[in-house]
Design a protein around this nucleic acid. Structure first.
Lengths: 258, 258
DNA sequence: TTTTATTTACAACACGTGTTGTAAACTAGA
DNA sequence: TCTAGTTTACAACACGTGTTGTAAATAAAA
C-alpha cells in the first residue's frame, strides 16, 4: 500500500517558492530527507546551458555540487552527447544507471569518447543515480536525478522512494520550467525592445523565407546592409543564427505570418 | 462637405462576402460605379505570390485583368523590385503615379532596368493609377490601386473620389487579408498535420538555434539524417528554407520556446 | 554643436544549408 | 505476405550565412 506525505508536503511548500533558487533549495532538502545524497535537475533539455538562478549563479552550486562538475557542461559538444540526457529523450520511465566510465556500452547504447568523459566527470561525485525523465507538452523534456554513493545503497533508496521521487520530480520540473520560461521570456522581451525598426523589418522578411539578396531588392538596399542588420538583430537577441532569432521573435509575438 | 454613401454601402455588402472571390467582385463593381476603369489589390506584400481565390484561380482574372499582366508577377525578382509596392512600404498616404517606362526617375527614386520593365507591363493596361497603401498591425502592408486611362481623367477621378477610395481601400484590405490569412493558415495547418514526429523534433531543435551537426549529436544520428528530415519538413510546409519553416511552425503553435 | 546611435556599403573566408542522387533497414497496414 | 511510408546513411556541389574587418553618411539627442 502506498502511504506517503513526502510528495504532498513538497508540493505545498513548492507552491510558495516563487524563485528558482528557493525551489531548488526545497528540492535539495527533500532529497536529503528521503535519504538521497544529492539531487540535480534540468527543466528543459532544449536549453544547452545549465539552469541559472535569478541571481545569475548556477543553481547547481546552491544545491551542493562542486564547481568542477559544472565545468564539464560548459562544453556544448559534451553536453549534447551526454548519455543521460539522450536517454531521457527516449524514455518515459525512471532509470537507474551507474557512472562507470570504463564500460564500453551504457544501457544498450555504445559509448563514444565524449560520453565516457562525461560519465567520468559524474563518477567524481557519485557512483550512480536514478534519473526521472519528465516530458511536457510541446515536446519539452526535463529530468531530475537522485544521486547516491554505492550501488547497494542506490538500489535500496530507489526501492524505498521510487513513488515519491516520481511524483516530486514531475511536480518540480513543471514548477521550475514555469519559472525558467518566465525568466527567459523576460530577458528576451527586454532584448527585443532594443531592436531598431530596420532590424525588425529585416527579421520579418527572413521569417517569410527571403534571402539577404531578396530583402535587399525589396528594401532597395544592398545585400550587405541587410546582412549587417540581421547580424545585429541576432546579437541583440543572443540568437545563434537567424532561424533562432526568428523563432524568438515569433514566440514574443513580434512577427505575424497569418 | 463630405456626403457619400458609397463607402458605407460597400462596407455593408463586404461584410456579407465570405470568400475572396466574392469580395474582389464587389471591389470591381465599386470601382466601376465610382468611374474608375479597374481596381487591383494586394492584401499582404509579405506574400510575393499574387492573391489566389478559393477556387485556385488568380483573383485578378475575375477582376478583369489580362493574363499577360499577371505573367510579369510570376518572376520573383521583378515582383520584389516593383516601384509601386516599394513605395507603399514608405508611404502612409495615397499617391498618384503614371506608368511611363521611359522616365529614368519615378517619384524621386531612380529606376533600374527591372523596374522599367515592370512599369512597361502596367502601361499595356493603364496610363496610371492612384495607389492607396494600407498599413496593418505587425508591419503588414497592403494596397489597393485604382486605374484609369488618360492623365487628365486620372486626376479628376482622384479629386472626385479620394475620400471614398481611401475608406474603401482600408476596409477592403482588412477584410481580404483576414480571408487570405485564414486560407493560408488552413493550408499550412493541413500541411503541418502530415509532419512526422521526427521531422517536428528536428524542427524544434532548429528553432533553438542548433545546427544539423548539433542535432545529430543530440539525437544520436548522423548529420545527413537530420538534414534529410529537415528537407522533408520544408517541402511539406512549402517553406523556402528552414527559417521559413520554423516561422510557420511557430505561428501554428507547434513550437514553444518559452 | 557635439556626441551617439543608426544606417549604409564593400570585402574575404570558413562554415552551414539546399538540392539531388543512391541504397538499405525498419514498421505498420492491406 | 506484400506494400507503402518512414528512417537511416553517405556523397557532391552550388549557394546562403556568420564573422570580422573598414569606412562614411545620416539622424537624433545632449
Amino acid at each position: 500500500m502506498f502511504i506517503s506525505n513526502a510528495d504532498t508536503r513538497f508540493r505545498e511548500r513548492l507552491a510558495g517558492a516563487s524563485t528558482l533558487a528557493a525551489s531548488s533549495r526545497l528540492l535539495a532538502e527533500c532529497a536529503d530527507s528521503l535519504g538521497w545524497e544529492r539531487a540535480a535537475f534540468h527543466a528543459d533539455l532544449g536549453q544547452t546551458r545549465l539552469p541559472v538562478a535569478e541571481s545569475g549563479e548556477f543553481v547547481a552550486i546552491a544545491m551542493g555540487w562542486p564547481v568542477a562538475t559544472l565545468r564539464h557542461w560548459q562544453d556544448d559538444r559534451l553536453a549534447l552527447t551526454c548519455p543521460v540526457t539522450r536517454r531521457c529523450g527516449r524514455s518515459m520511465d525512471a532509470f537507474l544507471w551507474d557512472s562507470d566510465p570504463d564500460s564500453t556500452t551504457w544501457e544498450g547504447e555504445k559509448l563514444g569518447q565524449d560520453q565516457r568523459s562525461t560519465l567520468a566527470s559524474y563518477k567524481a561525485c557519485a557512483d550512480g543515480a536514478v534519473t526521472v525523465p519528465v516530458h511536457r507538452p510541446g515536446g519539452k523534456t526535463g529530468f531530475v536525478s537522485w544521486f547516491s554513493h554505492g550501488e547497494a545503497r542506490l538500489r535500496t533508496r530507489h526501492q524505498a522512494t521510487w513513488r515519491e521521487i516520481q511524483l516530486i520530480s514531475h511536480a518540480f520540473i513543471a514548477h521550475a520550467d514555469g519559472l525558467e520560461s518566465a525568466l527567459r521570456r523576460k530577458s528576451a522581451r527586454a532584448a527585443a525592445d532594443t531592436l531598431t525598426a530596420r532590424e525588425l523589418e529585416c527579421l520579418s522578411w527572413v521569417a517569410r523565407g527571403k534571402t539577404d539578396e531578396d530583402i535587399g531588392l525589396i528594401l532597395g538596399r544592398s545585400r550587405e546592409t541587410v546582412h549587417f542588420h540581421l547580424g545585429k538583430a541576432m546579437k541583440k537577441l543572443s540568437a545563434s543564427n537567424r532561424t533562432h532569432a526568428v523563432a524568438i521573435a515569433c514566440s514574443l509575438g513580434l512577427i505575424h505570418l497569418f
